[in-house]
Amino acid sequence: MRMPDTANRSTLNDDGLLAQAFPPVAMFVIMIAAWQAVISAFAIPVYVLPSPGDIWLAIVNNPGPLFRHSGITLFEAVAGFVIGSMMGAVLGTLFAYSKFVARGLLPYVIAANTIPVVAVAPIIIIWFGHGLSSKVAVTAFLSFFPLALNMMKGLQSYDRTIMDVFHIAAATGPQRFFKMRLPNALPYVFVGLKLNVTFSVIGAIVAEFVQADKGLGFVIMTSYRTLNMPRLWAAMLMSALIGMAFFAIISMLERLIVPWHSSLHDNR
């Protein structure tokens, strides 16, 4: 039997982090160098593939607008993520507690989930107008399903013997929910949230493709029309950075909120 030694474990993690960080950083340097070399060697025109230097210049020469547009997309993604996830969590809870609601609504929810977001986005934009709220709504639409389904699964997957333990202890209904079913569902909730991180950035940008005068989707579309490929690539890079930062924040929250679950990965 080994006891978890907190000090020991964090040192191990730090070592692990450094060792983990080196390969991707090294690979990044190699890829950038190869990219630049290929463009020089074959004289590839900039509209086909801009060089890393071109993209870098597109960012640093006029950073203000690019960051402003990124901020807009980030806001839409986060707001849609929060609203959609919360609505999904509520509906998932309803599904878990009411067989009638689950059987009645689940087929339609799953059917709605299969509709491509590009088909839904114009409708939502008609409903919610040309401002930010319609982009938030499209993002929320995408963030809704993963959380509803994972919340339902998490709340239903409790251990029957633990339910007996709560029965012996004369637990009330709210106690069963807050002290057993909800904590038990949290690892599932985080699976849903991590899916939603990706979906929310996609949702925001797709909605901006359909109609927008700001945001990264707007930058990508206008750059495409003017064949300003370095700017398009810069916008793409920003959207990737938003997604990665967002994902990192959710992973950090997961470590804080469900440490018993993430400790599983650390200890093995």
Binding site: D159, T161, I162, V165, I168, A169, A170, M180, L186, W260
Partner: peptide
Amino acid sequence: DRQIGFVFQEPALLEWRCVLDNIALPLELR
């Protein structure tokens, strides 16, 4: 009336609670 203690074949501990909080659970619920 809290007069029954029951131990099952599986430990059925709550994995999100430390040992101390697992043992204190029935009292917490009361």
